[in-house]
Nucleic acid binder design. Structure first.
Lengths: 226, 226
DNA sequence: TTCATACTTCGATCGTAATCGAAGCATCCG
DNA sequence: CGGATGCTTCGATTACGATCGAAGTATGAA
């Protein structure tokens, strides 16, 4: 009778408001400590600890001990993709937790999606690379073309390093604000890191928003035309 | 502080085992009555009724009254896509509710995903159409090429009808068994309907499995080579 | 009309899980 | 070695929601 994967467990993990808040916070891409996550969720440290243990047992999170801190992060790209898909549906239902404010446009323009760039700019990035035939669409697996590899190395990204990882280099991720795909995978991560390292953009504190400097915006739009 | 869509509500709706069973049953694509859904979930009619009201309020389901029956179905394609994404993650965690049995290979080979074909055959269908340049990948939005339109009409599908609907004609849907995209959207639905109408395939009762006849299998593989 | 079917609503019970205070480990610092 | 910080575990409370019996509503059949 019963067939297929058990979605109830995953659903119930996401279904608790405290846990959902923590997961949303972790969609910012940075690993966070239980204390920080407790603040995000508005609960005590003890409760947060219990929630985090469950999320880890469910495979959604991994932790890394560092001194007396424990850093929690989403366990894989796939968790981020799944959450983004849920957010997409929730957004389409008009289920937002915040009154639309000045922060909202910034989020739609550019934000962090786990570890890569999302929003208008994220979509543009992928579109531009595809238009330049530096990335090829094959199913949901994107492939970097030869021209793409050259381009990426010219930007100062170590292609050999990307290859070493077992993660896919390119993959699509559905954007809940744009309803289109943007670039995820280790290349997506490397590019966001690059933009930040070059000082073109920086992450807003306590938000997923990414803010480009005037100079950085110019450079970005120039490098990735439509 | 809080930002982004509220995923907790959606998660909690999916998170109850009874509701998850009903949603999984509805992924079979057929509209079902509360009585049938109660049987699938192993609960009484009263409880099922309460669950269905919540799922409808949450926007996951719609109901259609017909005489003294009420037929519930997933409200949009997007719900199916979201659930398939959850199943994909759950499957990758090895969270299956059933001991692997003889039914499993049949599900992997060909099954219904809400209203279109999924599994090995579903993936092959999209791959073949892309290889023949009858469908073009552009972001996650697939586009039917001119050649594709001709092909589709030659198969006896009313292209004008497809265009009338506000739903996208082609879209990708991530396959939890193959981990690749297959074809969703109104064209995906029309093609599955075609296969069944032609007698090439039929739905297994009480399962998402789609079984091809020998003749139907031959015709399908012939029409959609790799 | 009367009866039957399909479903919803109401009300009460019961279980589970979220929550937090208090106590217990672990790690770092001086 | 204290002493402080960061976190987990334990235990008790509490609140919410799943469940079902019983009663109510709607549609169709006889």
């Amino acid at each position: 009778m019963k067939e297929g994967p058990d979605i109830a467990l995953i659903g119930s993990l996401i279904g608790d408001p405290a846990r959902a808040n923590m997961l949303t916070a972790l969609m910012g891409g940075q690993a966070l400590t239980p204390t920080e996550l407790a603040a995000h969720a508005g609960i005590t440290l003890q409760t947060a600890s219990s929630h985090l243990a469950k999320l880890e047992a469910g495979g959604l999170l991994t932790q890394r001990k560092q001194g007396r801190h424990r850093y929690y992060a989403l366990s894989e790209d796939e968790v981020g993709l799944m959450l983004e898909s849920l957010m997409g549906f929730a957004a389409s239902r008009g289920l937002t937790r915040h009154r639309p404010g000045p922060k909202d446009p910034a989020l739609r323009k550019a934000r962090v999606c786990y570890n890569h760039l999302a929003g208008d700019y994220g979509v543009r990035l992928l579109d531009s690379l595809v238009a330049a035939r530096q990335i090829e669409m094959m199913g949901d697996d994107l492939a970097l073309t030869d021209a793409g590899r050259v381009r990426v190395e010219a930007l100062g990204i170590d292609y050999a390093m990307l290859q070493k990882s077992r993660r896919p280099i390119c993959r699509t991720c559905l954007d809940w604000s744009e309803r289109r795909s943007h670039l995820a995978g280790s290349l997506g991560e490397a590019l966001l890191t690059l933009f930040i390292d070059k000082g073109w953009a920086r992450r807003e504190k306590d938000s997923r928003a990414v803010r480009f400097s005037d100079e950085g915006e110019k450079a970005f739009l120039d490098l990735f035309p439509l």
